[in-house]
Design a protein around this nucleic acid. Sequence first.
DNA 1: GTGTAAGTTGAAGTTAACTTCAGGTCAAGA
DNA 2: TCTTGACCTGAAGTTAACTTCAACTTACAC
Lengths: 147, 147
Amino acid sequence: MELLTIGEVASRSGFAPSAIRFYEREGLLSALRSSGNQRRYARDVLRRLAFIRAARNIGLSLEEITAALAELPGGRTPTRADWARLSRSWRGRLNEQIDALVALRDGLDSCIGCGCLSLQRCAVSNTGDTAAALGPGARWLPPALRR
Amino acid sequence: MELLTIGEVASRSGFAPSAIRFYEREGLLSALRSSGNQRRYARDVLRRLAFIRAARNIGLSLEEITAALAELPGGRTPTRADWARLSRSWRGRLNEQIDALVALRDGLDSCIGCGCLSLQRCAVSNTGDTAAALGPGARWLPPALRR
DNA sequence: GTGTAAGTTGAAGTTAACTTCAGGTCAAGA
DNA sequence: TCTTGACCTGAAGTTAACTTCAACTTACAC
């Protein structure tokens, strides 16, 4: 089987070589080595990187991604079903983020024109009210949305 | 008129004193000084801080907030209408963010079960397709959502 | 007057997720 | 063989938005 160099993996995955090395240091990837100590990759690293990219797009931190990857079966190449199982939980997370933003927008609608931005009453500036607006189960804006 | 100490402003606004000093260094706030060089604040700093908090909740960077605050009228205390005008543009921004997340969720729905995460075809892992899914006018995930 | 909580400063530290750099080594086409 | 682009490592730099620290000063209740 043909092995890929880090440069090839980089151009095919869209990640910079430095990012790929960084992911290896962080334990998200592993690599074979050539006789001269250069990294060599099997093709399935591309799906792993696609998973990482997708998870990042959803808003997961590398720490969360590492944890998710740890649930892949050891000893065999993951199947499509394995990857699908891992990404199933993302839907709820996205829905939470969407709900939070919608609540914020609706709060904003009721604030615009009033301009109060009251720390006591305004749904947009008052963190307590903002949290309340999200309902039980989603008490704060997800970190990705709080910046 | 009563002036507030930084500690009072901190407890009333919910910002840490260090954050308030930081905002002053960055030009988002200004303060009077006591005879002994301690910061003293007029009450309207609280509305300014509420605006900052609201803008942060929407996902604006401090740089953007600084730019927004620069549009306040100089020479007079801003009115509610001034604050309302500034926050009006946030609605479009929130809608963009919501649309981006909805597109991502819908892409995810079509990916779950397939598990392909193909760099060529998957709407969740393929940045090109993801951008396309957002339609014209919102070509990429907003930075706040990309983490 | 005195004790102490609160305030002051500039500089350095924090976190995530990488990138950049310096100083070498490897691989492969001509 | 030579050249040159790709690769190697560890360390340091980057960015945003603050926080923490050290060393010192003020404000105010008793």
